[in-house]
């Protein structure tokens, strides 16, 4: 435990407050995440999970708060953070193929006036293979199912070769086997020292998937290792309801 204090944290948030037109979405949230962790962000609908990710990326303004990643401000480290939003507000009829969409992931690491070359294209194809979408490389992006589209955006995030990953509900609409494959990819990233934050809905899987949890409902309800946070009495506070299935699980454990 003491060692943690001396280790540089991957993400540090102090006193974060975010509101939309005067309505609070996030109140007084502080936490830190050490590098090489796979972290789940859970909480009910409207808890501010997506808002938290957007505020960390400074895609929306915050009222107060300090945010550091790898000891730097977000503007310095932006290019090393990959983000997959909950809903991409893109035009699905855009003239772009699946492989070219994944290739966009390499853009942040290319200089201005620089074009993606063979190396970048090979990387994009590898990432597409990893999410099991290699056969669809030359399809137009709108000609995929919702789950397939989600996997393509996952591949794009991988192609960015970032240090920190923000994934907002990456498993929604994804079938069981692809979900497993993606979870394994995320665990590989973590084992490679990357920090991965995942907004997640399905409480049943939360303790299999993650090392740590951030439990949110406007305020921070709990943060830390899964065993400490994933308890029915703490979850009940966030969701305002009882969790009988959890009690059974705890008995089994």
């Amino acid at each position: 435990m003491r060692g943690d204090i001396f280790m540089l944290s991957a993400i540090t948030v102090r006193n974060l407050n975010v509101s939309y037109h005067g309505n609070d979405a996030i109140q007084n949230v502080s936490f830190s995440v050490s590098p090489g962790k796979l972290v789940g962000i859970i909480g009910p609908n409207g808890a501010g999970k997506s808002t938290l990710l957007k505020a960390l990326l400074e895609l929306i303004p915050r009222d107060t708060g300090e945010i550091q990643m790898n000891g730097k401000g977000i503007s310095e480290i932006r290019k090393h953070v990959a983000y997959v939003p909950q809903r991409s507000n893109i035009d699905w009829d855009f003239p772009i193929t699946v492989i070219d969409t994944v290739l966009l992931g390499t853009y942040p690491n290319l200089g201005i006036f620089q074009r993606p070359k063979k190396k970048e294209k090979a990387l994009a194809y590898d990432c597409l293979q990893k999410v099991g979408m290699g056969d669809y490389a030359n399809r137009q992006i709108g000609e995929l199912s919702g789950g397939q589209q989600q996997r393509v955006f996952m591949a794009r995030a991988l192609a960015q070769q970032a240090d920190i990953f923000f994934l907002d509900e990456p498993f929604v609409g994804i079938d069981v086997s692809s979900e497993k494959a993606i979870v394994n990819i995320l665990k590989e990233l973590r084992d490679g020292g990357k920090t991965v934050l995942v907004v997640h809905h399905d409480l049943n899987k939360a303790n299999d998937y993650f090392d740590e949890l951030i439990l949110l409902n406007k305020e921070l309800i709990g943060v830390g290792e899964v065993e400490k946070v994933f308890r029915s009495e703490i979850l009940a506070k966030a969701y305002n309801t009882q969790f009988p299935f959890l009690k059974e699980m705890e008995v089994q454990m």
Partner: peptide, 21 residues
């Protein structure tokens, strides 16, 4: 020609473009 890359990505996905600066 010079800014093709930036024009492509900002036309297609403004969220990702903003996220990476």
């Amino acid at each position: 020609y010079l800014f093709y890359k930036e024009l492509l990505i900002s036309s297609f996905d403004s969220t990702m473009s903003a996220a990476y600066g």
